[in-house]
Write a protein that binds this DNA or RNA. Structure first.
Lengths: 343, 343
DNA sequence: GACTCATTTGCAAACGTTTGCAAGATTCCT
DNA sequence: AGGAATCTTGCAAACGTTTGCAAATGAGTC
């Protein structure tokens, strides 16, 4: 069986021209028939469609893309700026990615995934865009690349970013109101009686910085001492010991912890228990994200919920509108406090 | 500023021909220079490279792909056969996906992600392959599509599948020895004193069926009653109540549970506690996967570890070898019992 | 300086589709 | 039956690269 033959031994029909020969028409007609254009006679179309089905023919997307100057592919890129190892397997991003895949598929687009380490090449975004392989790009997380993204946004329209919204920024962003989320968290801690509050997590990434700032807002407004920033990495292995160290040092001096993510909160819960501190009696704890794990900790985690599905829908919706030439505003989603038992 | 101009106002150089004009050479020479072929004079090459850098030029991948008949893209497809909602956000698959992205990037390939619901179209795999957009495909999980995959494998070489290995199968698969994993789990339960063992999870998917079978092997060998299959869905919401129901019915009659995944095990732990059964005293519990969550349950979960990173490396390695024309055997990875505190 | 041989370049034909244009085939009037 | 109007179709030129072939250039040898 030669490479030119299908498994049944007949000559394989790989191109639109092959199919045209079989149907006794010109390639142009086949193209039109398969594209479902109205200009082709119904009987001809049906014959061609039948033949295509029979031979399992599918037009080559590369050729089509080249000719039409669009590919039907949306790039999704995850810049790993802050904390290389963890970020990607981070449940939050991964869940978002899942929803994105669904949402894009629904709209007839394919998804090209790329992880980049911006430190290695400053060019990461232009490279992706300039490849000609994608019609638009969704950036998941601004990481430490805010400026780079701003620059690109000036010259490239079909881009939407998941992340934090900043006054006056030029790129179109979809994301939760992190600062408000931080306020909700801090308010809950304080309402439960906490007075000396700590923020657990790296305040480098903008999303986290905003959550931290939100908590600060509330502490200041209530006349409490400033929120203590306990910096950690995101990867569970390193975070665990860092949390243990922080708690050993400050554990007795604080009575409320706002963790930057549920993942950190869950680790923190474990360490708190290990150090003999009870939650929520000795220390109150609020997480962020409302990942599945939040229901499964003991006690179940009070957390600030992000609507990931809505985020994915928003990203895709805005991107498609931009592809259509519209100018779009950023979309800021409201976080929601989900009260369980840790605060 | 017209669409033809870059942000600095100079005419944008979008094609290799534009660049050729600038450099005063022919397009062919530019192509060769940029491809790093040896046939071009060093001085010419340097001039062209400098120009390309200066104008941020990148050759169009679609055109290149069309001409060379290869795209530099590997398709990754997740068939959602058994349990639509959960499977994709399942941490295991997502973690594997992350490692795959890294591994493919390292080898200079891009990753195109597609989720499909095979029920909707029987054609899912051929469609992806026939699109002409990908050089090869990695299927994550056989789901209930074993036969479909076998058929395709007969006529399409560059495909590797993550899943369970079956005697005599025709497609190249990478996966953990699930049956052995099942045996390890059951042996551990029995060594701890369990006599009446249950398997928690859907036994439909082949991977799970093999895990179940492994546990059966051991029970039979030891002369214990057959393992009780407690069927559940994978999505946390439905699984929780199903587990509760199972435990209410059989909870007191069993003393060892082997959960199909860590996610199920974690849910099960919660339900066991809710029903007043203590782990590991009343009931012993072993999970599967060794996801991060396994360390964070209380008590921490004894589980059967799959080496996800090694799996991703294996998948990519075999796929590249197949792209190179080699014939490859399937790769079966050994699972490893990770003992913590639930069994 | 005439010759060979090795390097470096340009030319033009692909890769498989889509699509504007014009020609050919139908239909519908009158 | 003649013509206008409408449908269908074919032709051929793109889309932006890569690459075999041959021409041109340069270096080296006698």
């Amino acid at each position: 069986m030669s490479a030119r033959e299908g498994k049944d031994g007949r000559a394989a029909v790989r191109t639109i021209t092959d199919l045209a020969r079989l149907a006794g028409v010109s390639p142009g007609t086949v193209s039109r028939a398969l594209a479902g254009k109205s200009l082709v006679n119904t009987r001809t179309r049906e014959k061609i469609e039948a033949l295509a089905r029979e031979h399992g023919f599918r037009p080559n997307q590369m050729a089509s893309g080249l000719r039409r100057q669009k590919t039907g592919v949306i790039g999704v890129v995850i810049p790993l700026g802050h904390d290389i190892r963890q970020q990607i397997s981070d449940s939050f991003f991964m869940t978002l990615l899942g929803f994105l895949a669904d949402e894009l598929t629904t709209h007839g687009y394919d998804l090209m995934l790329r992880r980049v380490v911006p430190g290695d090449d400053a060019d990461w975004l232009d490279r992706f865009i300039g490849s000609g392989m994608i019609d638009g790009v969704i950036v998941i997380g601004q990481s430490d690349q805010f400026e780079r993204i701003e620059e690109v946004a000036d010259g490239y329209r079909p881009m939407v970013v998941w992340g934090n919204h900043q006054e006056g920024q030029r790129h179109c962003v979809v994301g939760t109101d992190n600062r408000l989320g931080g306020r909700l968290a801090a308010e809950r801690l304080i309402a439960g009686g906490a007075r000396r509050i700590a923020f657990l997590g790296d305040t480098g990434p903008m999303e986290f910085a905003a959550r931290f700032a939100g908590a600060q807002d509330v502490a200041a407004r209530m006349g409490l001492p400033p929120v203590l920033a306990l910096s950690t990495h995101l990867s569970p292995d390193r975070a665990s010991e860092e949390i243990a160290r922080h708690l050993a040092q400050h554990g007795r001096a604080i009575d409320g912890i706002f963790a930057a993510t549920d993942t950190l909160a869950a680790l923190c819960l474990t360490e708190l228990r290990a150090q003999g501190l009870s939650v929520p009696d000795d220390v109150k704890l609020v997480g962020f994200d409302d990942l599945p794990i939040a229901r499964q900790t003991i006690p179940p985690l009070t957390t600030v919920r992000q609507d990931i599905a809505a985020g994915a829908r928003g990203l895709v919706d805005l991107l498609l509108r931009r592809l259509g030439g519209e100018t779009t505003e950023s979309l800021v989603l409201p976080p929601e406090l989900t009260v369980r038992e840790t605060a």
